[in-house]
Amino acid sequence: MITLRRTLPGIVMIIVSLVILYQSLLIQGTEQLNPSGGGFLPGIIAIVLIICGIVTIINDLRKEVTTKTDEEKEKAFSNSDYLLIFSYFIFIVLYVLSLSFLPFLISTTLFLIISIYLLKGIKWYTNIIVSVATVMIIYFLFSQLFNIVFP
């Protein structure tokens, strides 16, 4: 299990490279070994990428399993970090989804107020003032200065 975790980046690299290699072999209408064809260079790159993946796996396996220093521990992401990050990402996706049926001003104000509330640490009146003011500024700045038509 630990070995799998350690070699995961390298394995993903190799899978991605194999997809690229397969796709470059698929490119139509060219002979594969003709350098002026569309698939030759991507094919070469895919092979280099596979080598990079193998090197990464070897490097990761060679690293001795030492106890992590405090700095490394601080740098590593904990599960609760991931939970926070992915739930916030999903929230951003929901916001983008809402743009297709809610007016920009309403959905953005709601997004900001709920975001700042969920991320904690800011007083509720500061939250509302900041959110409303930001949306106003963004709206006028972007629609007037950058001529953007909002959804």
Binding site: Y95, L119, G121, I138
Partner: peptide, 15 residues
């Protein structure tokens, strides 16, 4: 505070 900054950057990036 990052709590305020990050959502605002998110909105601007989306726009």
């Amino acid at each position: 505070p990052k709590q305020i900054l990050l959502p605002i950057i998110a909105v601007i990036t989306v726009i």
